[in-house]
Amino acid sequence: MWIYEKKLQYPVRVSKCDPRLAKYLIEQYGGADGELAAALRYLNQRYSIPDRVIGLLTDIGTEEFAHLEMIATMVYKLTKDATPEQLKAAGLGEHFADHDHALAYHNAAGVPWTATYIQAKGDPIADLYEDIAAEEKARATYQWLIDLTDDVDIQDALKFLREREIVHSLRFREAVEILKEHQGQKRLF
């Protein structure tokens, strides 16, 4: 069960009327390394992972949903007032043809989100290494998105999200260390 707090994890300010940026930001909404994939990956893997790291997956998976609604807010603010002509000019004509002004879970190229983006191998080490890789790939995606805009307010929120990926990656690597056990101990088998 979750408790919803009706505010964003970090404030989202959009200062430049630039619908084209929404086309790129949607990568983090419905892309392979996006926030939806991250949230669903962790919240699913947590059932079969050892008890000591379930809480970590729950916490990070929950935070990914908070990131998802930050991305959604950016995309919505950038597109909600655009006319069909403006969307067409921004390369979003294809999106408008299918979705009007609605958001959709697809990547920047329009490929719909698929469950094949996320894995659950059941092996705790394998699953955590996937999670670490996912965080680093999401961090890289945020870097390319920051590079694609000159709106300093959007950049500010994207930099916050990028930093969270860095922290999450370290937490997952710590989880691997916890599961390795026996380190720094002298044990005879």
Binding site: S15, P19, D81, T83
Partner: peptide, 13 residues
């Protein structure tokens, strides 16, 4: 009507 913030980047539609 939908909410339009004074901080929204584009003019309302």
């Amino acid at each position: 009507e939908s909410f339009h913030s004074p901080l929204d980047p584009c003019p309302p539609r």
